[in-house]
Simulated assay, not measured.
Amino acid sequence: MIRLLEEAFEADPVTRWVFPEADHRRKVCGLFFGVFADAALTEGRVELLEDGTGMALWLQEPAGIPEEEDDTPARMREIADPENERAELVGRLTGAVHPHDRAHEYLLMIAVSPEHQGRGLGRRLIESVLERCDRDGVPAYLEASSARSRRLYERLGFRFTGTTVDLPDGPHMWPMWREPRPR
């Protein structure tokens, strides 16, 4: 799982902002992505293609503001790269805009190996969960980390919420929401 996340996010603008030096990025990204994988494995679910070329990490988010502060951004930094403030800041900034008014499915991350990207595998991974969302009347949420991924999500019915996450001297992220479609 970690190797797939590392490969899929090697060229991602947010990953490159968090870890700008290539050699350092290769050393610590697995630890960074491991926090996401652990969260999905313990609190959510992982949709994995049989051949291992793609996966999606999902969390079920309840309605309401959490009673306790989310310590995930601090853990990301502590585990992966303690001296790197950006390893925590990206989580804090995305957490600040994450909607809490309704329960929803949260696409934490989706990864398709670079040699298999552009073949509809990401769409296939997401659609299986969106079908369940539609059936159960549950919305979905994510943050697109590139213009390319934003276009994919828009084709799947996600809409930009109107406020970007602006990483200091870095790329933008687009929070996106999808209402369930009537069956």
Rank of each mutant, 00 (worst) to 15 (best):
M1A: 15
M1S: 15
I2W: 01
L4H: 08
L4D: 06
L5F: 05
L5K: 00
E7K: 14
A8Y: 02
F9S: 06
E10F: 14
E10H: 15
E10W: 14
A11P: 03
T15R: 04
R16N: 08
W17F: 01
W17S: 08
V18K: 09
F19T: 05
P20Y: 11
P20S: 07
E21S: 10
E21H: 13
D23C: 08
H24D: 13
R25Q: 14
R25E: 11
R26Q: 14
R26G: 07
V28C: 05
V28Q: 00
G30H: 02
G30E: 09
F32K: 00
F32V: 11
F33E: 13
F36H: 13
A37V: 15
D38S: 12
A39Q: 12
A40R: 01
A40L: 04
L41T: 07
T42M: 02
E43Q: 11
V46T: 03
E47Y: 06
E47Q: 01
L48N: 04
L48Q: 13
E50S: 13
D51T: 11
T53M: 11
T53Y: 14
W58I: 00
L59Q: 09
Q60D: 10
E61I: 14
E61A: 10
A63I: 01
A63S: 12
A63W: 05
I65M: 12
P66S: 11
E69Q: 14
D70L: 12
D70F: 15
T72H: 10
A74H: 07
R75Q: 14
R75N: 07
M76W: 05
M76G: 03
R77L: 07
A80C: 03
A80T: 02
A80K: 00
D81K: 02
E83T: 14
N84H: 05
E85M: 11
R86F: 01
L89T: 14
V90L: 09
L93R: 13
L93K: 13
T94Y: 08
V97Q: 09
V97C: 08
V97D: 05
H100Q: 11
H100N: 11
H104K: 00
L107C: 15
L107A: 13
L107W: 02
V112C: 10
P114W: 00
E115Q: 15
E115M: 11
H116R: 15
H116Y: 15
G118S: 10
G118E: 12
L121I: 15
R123P: 06
I126Y: 01
I126C: 13
S128C: 06
S128M: 03
V129A: 09
L130R: 06
R132H: 03
C133P: 02
D134T: 05
D136L: 11
P139W: 00
P139Q: 00
A140V: 04
A140W: 00
Y141N: 10
L142S: 06
S145Y: 03
S146N: 07
L152P: 07
Y153S: 06
E154Y: 04
R155T: 15
F158Y: 13
F158R: 05
R159S: 11
T161R: 03
T161Y: 01
T161V: 13
T164R: 06
D166Y: 08
P168S: 07
D169A: 12
G170E: 05
G170V: 00
P171S: 09
H172Y: 10
P175A: 08
W177Y: 10
W177T: 07
W177C: 05
E179T: 06
P180V: 00
R181V: 12
R183H: 09
R183G: 04
R183M: 04
